[in-house]
């Protein structure tokens, strides 16, 4: 698999370390009354979809940036990649963390 790094172009997936679902960027609010359940769900539960999946890859053997890669888990086709810092910005699709 080749990951289209937004700064470095196409890079071999072997240069990266995989973490998992990109929703891991949205940590629950530790002060919420439901924080215990929220954190348990955050740490252990996953959507694990068959199809399009947004996921975190770390460019360990490269520029050590975190990417959000959009990939199809049924075909391994990579549909896009962006810097995690960009993906986390409120102007994109994600809610800002409280």
């Amino acid at each position: 698999m080749l990951i289209p790094h937004p700064l470095l172009g196409l890079r071999d997936a072997e240069e990266f370390v995989y973490l998992g679902d990109a929703s891991l960027m949205q940590r629950p609010d530790p002060d919420s009354p439901t924080a215990l359940t929220d954190f348990c769900d955050y740490v252990f539960l996953r959507d694990n979809p068959a199809g399009v999946h947004r996921e975190l890859w770390f460019h360990e053997q490269g520029d050590r940036s975190w990417l959000v890669v959009t990939r199809n888990t049924l075909t391994h086709e990579i549909l896009g990649a962006e810097l995690a810092t960009d993906a986390a910005r409120p102007t994109v699709t994600q809610e800002p963390s409280a």
Partner: peptide, 13 residues
């Protein structure tokens, strides 16, 4: 292989 997959086939690395 180390990444989420439902493809029933892996990659060369």
């Amino acid at each position: 292989d180390g990444y989420n997959s439902y493809a029933q086939r892996g990659n060369l690395p």
